[in-house]
Design a binder for these strands. Sequence first.
DNA 1: CTGAAAGCGCTAACAG
DNA 2: CTGTTAGCGCTTTCAG
Lengths: 339, 339
Amino acid sequence: MVTLAEVARHAGVSASTVSYVLSGKRSISAVTRQRVRDSIEHLGYHPHAGARALASSRSRVIALMVPLRTDMYVPVMMEIAIAVATTARVHGYDVLLLTGEEGPAAVQRVTGSGLAEAMILMDIQLDDERLPLLRGGGQPAVLVGLPADPSGLTCVDLDFTATGALCADHLAELGHRELAVIGEAPGVYERHTGFAERTLAGLRDRAARHGISVLHRPCGGGYGSLVGTLGRIFDERPGTTGFAVQNEAVVEPLLALLRQDGRAVPEDVSVVAVCPEQVATQASVRLTSVAVPAQELGRRAVELLMAKLRSRPGEEVVLLPPELTVRDSSGWAPDVNCR
Amino acid sequence: MVTLAEVARHAGVSASTVSYVLSGKRSISAVTRQRVRDSIEHLGYHPHAGARALASSRSRVIALMVPLRTDMYVPVMMEIAIAVATTARVHGYDVLLLTGEEGPAAVQRVTGSGLAEAMILMDIQLDDERLPLLRGGGQPAVLVGLPADPSGLTCVDLDFTATGALCADHLAELGHRELAVIGEAPGVYERHTGFAERTLAGLRDRAARHGISVLHRPCGGGYGSLVGTLGRIFDERPGTTGFAVQNEAVVEPLLALLRQDGRAVPEDVSVVAVCPEQVATQASVRLTSVAVPAQELGRRAVELLMAKLRSRPGEEVVLLPPELTVRDSSGWAPDVNCR
DNA sequence: CTGAAAGCGCTAACAG
DNA sequence: CTGTTAGCGCTTTCAG
């Protein structure tokens, strides 16, 4: 292994000079700098990460805790994770991948050992068990998601309350009076995962103001679950004409089932989805949707973390405003004359 | 920060004793061990990862390189990644997440710096640019996937050639004479990603032996792409009755389109998929399929790597045998009397 | 603008 | 069974 000392010898300078060439923390004459750089190149030198972390007490690693569960839409998680990794690299950081499996202990282990300087947590529950550790607050952290009490924490998320409201507004404007919400798997609500409950609350609240009814049904993944769910929705509220879907895994099955039922989209029923753009545009009917900005969330999380690593400000909550894109799946309610 | 020296002082022993209690590399009297453990617990001590890596030249971290691209089925990648992280923890290792973005340079950077001891690579192309670095072979590595020339490398993958053959056999036995293969996005083939080409080769080869025809069409994600692809398949080969699908994103669209066309599955056409079990069982018709054992791949990759970390054996290729599960999407070809 | 030298916290001989 | 000690490779004062 090539060491800094060898580079120094080869370049005919001292170790500290090489170190400063690398860090840029003091000025070096152009000629020396170049000689050092040549030696580094020539010898194929890579600074030893452990030694560096030991001497500087900065590992240049952040940890990312992803959920172990598989009942939520995985591509969104993956997209966030990749955006985190990519953005971290831009800032000179690497990313350690932790699964939720170890739970709060992982937080201790990783930051306690100096393996990571800071962490990003995903899949936040309203009353998440990892939060007390973070709030006490040795280790800088950013949550992708919003717990019930964000005090003393830094969070970034899509504004799901506003998202729900936006869906309600859109369907209300089109004259729909009876809405159904097809949600995530029951487990997601049982765990009190913030985003799912917030969307629902936002939608319900806004629908109430419009004086329209809302029926919410969680739904497992896949065609099989949806058949039952949809059947029960129409049994209970035959007049349902507006659907809000927050469950990517049933988007296509829903469109297929409606088609089979002889219900045309958007002539007979309208569908609004909360999902990534790709899902919305690739569906069999191009979906009116509120995009989940996965990349943006990952990027922002890292940037907030980097800011915290510099100076430790208090709490901060960044809620990205939702945007609804009208496509082909929503239209006037059947009983509305097109004004 | 609590250091080993502080623990030693608190327990009234020497630093090395604490170290050995932690590593178990020499025998310690029960009473001393307990005193040390109590002190560790009491002080909330966590060994410093960097110091440890520096002194032992072992970081207890492995790197996982995931593809940046998004034109392949993400859940499989994610499942492998999570299995890797989970299995690594069992062996006392953490996982560093690298995206393909940096390319071969990431391999150098991470192992050159001692940040990771070894790496696992995914999304292997037949002629992957990262391979020369690994074959030269300072750093132990395991590929999840199979390049054209695996000499000097350790690989683990599903046996996709056998997978293709299995699909061909199954459809041939049911009397189908004209097969169509709906494959991954064109880009996947253009990059010469091993698994896609192998499946096709295995299927073609076996089909030829059965004397039946095969038409292969790559297909982008989503409903839109498939409409065109499927149309062209039936234009070109109206007698097609057997489909092999290796593209999770079009499984449900395919079933929907066939239904709309008035082609019943499995009465008129049979469909065999290569996909995770979950996709097969949650589809609108339960699919006859060959499972992609994502978890198993991740687990095996880590285990192979751990073995390599102990003693460095030469090349080794582990191909998991495919298993075809018959469900509701495949049946006798229409012109076959049920014997 | 550059060197010398003192650690960072831990591991692993070596010595008993 | 336990203690002493010499580094691991780098950063960062302190001197010049």
